[in-house]
Design a protein around this nucleic acid. Structure first.
Ligand SMILES: [Zn+2]
Ligand SMILES: [Zn+2]
Ligand SMILES: [Zn+2]
Ligand SMILES: [Zn+2]
Lengths: 142, 142
DNA sequence: TTGTTCTTGCAACTGAGTTGCATTTGATGT
DNA sequence: ACATCAAATGCAACTCAGTTGCAAGAACAA
């Protein structure tokens, strides 16, 4: 169990040709366990007492994004949410939903948004779709 | 020409039941003439020397968004870009493209992105699509 | 015109993210 | 195991878009 996660994380770093350090492993582990996008602060909280410095976390995430291990999923309240990119194709990430009532955000892995029209000379390397509205719970209680 | 814009702007404020003040008129005029999303700072630049205080601009924009006159189009470098919402349907705004090479952003009014799958209980009130890649110019010179 | 309410401007504040630099650490070769 | 060096970390100070509180000013209805 734990060893499996640890091994997976080490493997991710190795195949991205990045140095295996404790902060990096801890950050990737937090993201791997989360199954949802996390902010820098949430990552630190989940790592706990001996979490890396915030600068270290930002720089590690930046490195991961450059290595395409991690995506910037969406922005909310001026802060970025990060998630592992293992569910995304190169050009298209899954949509993210934010509830205007309760504020929770969900990854909509199932909801596929095809891009029909040709893009007239634009080369699209990444697609980010943000949805806002009411989540199932809030829409029932409304 | 100028009178027409001015009248249009006054009409927008009136039908939204908002007080017609000089700062608000100037801000809407700037957005109307721009035909592309603008930041708070860009709005101030376009208004010129007697531009309203930045707090006033932010508060006016906030009011416009609440009244659905203006949309928050996208975020870039931690700053919001605002645009008139007259091209958007209630639930879907047009996609915005940002070039990773030259940094310019475009409104892709033509590119329609249909939402196929049913959204399983979610009520989607707004869709924001951000595209990143290479613009026609940059993709040619690359 | 008067009075009420909404709007504006200013100054001080907030907080996510960044930068510079000294220190530590992982990887590589001996 | 040890030396070496580039890369990663931690800390403090900084940046800057956006916010907040409050006093003064302007729109609008009576
Ligand atoms: Zn909800
Ligand atoms: Zn996601
Ligand atoms: Zn370009
Ligand atoms: Zn647009």
């Amino acid at each position: 169990m734990k060893g499996e996660t640890k091994h997976k994380v080490q493997q991710m770093l190795k195949s991205a040709r990045l140095r295996r350090t404790k902060p990096r492993s801890d950050i990737l582990t937090a993201l791997l366990k989360a199954h949802q996008p996390l902010t820098r602060e949430q990552i630190a909280e989940r790592i706990g007492a001996c979490a890396p410095n915030k600068v270290t976390i930002y720089r590690a995430l930046e490195t991961f994004v450059a290595a395409d291990i991690v995506h910037k999923a969406f922005v909310q309240n001026r802060t970025w949410y990060f998630e592992l990119s293992h569910h995304c194709t190169a050009d298209q990430c899954h949509p993210h939903f934010c509830c205007r009532c309760c504020g929770r955000t969900d990854c909509l892995h199932e909801l596929h948004i095809p891009m029909t029209a040709d893009s007239g000379g634009y080369i699209i390397q990444h697609q980010r779709v943000q949805l806002e509205g009411l989540c199932p719970k809030c829409s029932k209680s409304a």
